[in-house]
């Protein structure tokens, strides 16, 4: 979480996917407050991971398109 906090400080537009090993509400709330887009739990499911990455990439592309259209 500290790393994510630092990365967000350097790049506020950073997109992130968090992986949690335990169902902890405080950690979940912290992740949400740090702007994590997607949360995954262990054990990891490769299909689920792929779907989340695809979703985040799509959102990045959509935002870029919108930003370019505004220029």
């Amino acid at each position: 979480m500290e790393l994510l906090e630092e990365l967000r400080r350097l790049n506020p537009d950073l997109r992130s996917i968090a992986v949690s090993q335990s169902p902890s509400l405080p950690r979940l709330r912290q992740a949400i407050s740090l702007g994590v887009q997607e949360i995954l739990f262990t054990p990891l499911d490769p299909e689920e991971l792929e779907a989340k990455i695809t979703k985040v990439v799509k959102a990045v592309k959509r935002d870029l398109k919108e930003a370019l259209a505004l220029q």
Binding site: P23, L25, L28, I32, E47
Partner: peptide
């Protein structure tokens, strides 16, 4: 995998708060 876990954890976090 494709639906429920995509939102229910965040709902729980908001409810807890």
């Amino acid at each position: 995998r494709d639906h429920l876990m995509g939102w229910a954890p965040e709902f729980c976090a908001v409810l807890d708060k």
